[in-house]
């Protein structure tokens, strides 16, 4: 009597799990929303209102391919609102399009040099 033994081998899966803190909300200091991005300003507004109420301002743009910009309001304590928005838009216009959804992290350092009498 002949028997055929088939060796199919063994199959294993390696699972790696990485735990980390969730960014709340899942965006950084600034979020730039293109006119044809996967989410729009109203969706972002509802998200930040739900997850980080009062911490972000969604500013809608009338022209250009960026429809809106969500900015952490705390930044306006450091730099004037218009100045900051203008500067960000000026920089991103070079590499964004209507479908862009770009997050940005700002690092503001204020250098002070004072001369005092000794």
């Amino acid at each position: 009597m002949n028997s055929i033994i088939e060796d199919r081998g063994s199959r294993k899966a390696d699972i790696n799990i990485r735990f980390s803190d969730f960014d709340l909300p899942p965006m950084q200091d600034v979020l730039l929303i293109g006119r044809r991005a996967a989410i729009g300003p109203e969706a972002v507004r509802r998200m930040v209102d739900a997850l980080a109420p009062g911490q972000y301002e969604v500013i809608e743009m009338e022209n250009g391919h960026i429809e809106a910009i969500a900015v952490k309001v705390e930044l306006f304590n450091w730099v004037k609102r218009e100045r900051l928005v203008d500067m960000i838009l000026e920089e991103v216009n070079m590499f964004t399009c209507e479908k862009s959804l770009i997050k940005a992290k700002l690092s503001i350092t204020i250098s002070i040099t004072r001369e005092v009498d000794i």
Binding site: R36, A38, I39, G40, P41, E42, A43, R46, K99
Partner: peptide
């Protein structure tokens, strides 16, 4: 036609 399918109606 001009909107991403994931967008909210409010945004489109």
């Amino acid at each position: 036609y001009f909107s991403h399918p994931n967008r909210l109606v409010a945004d489109s």
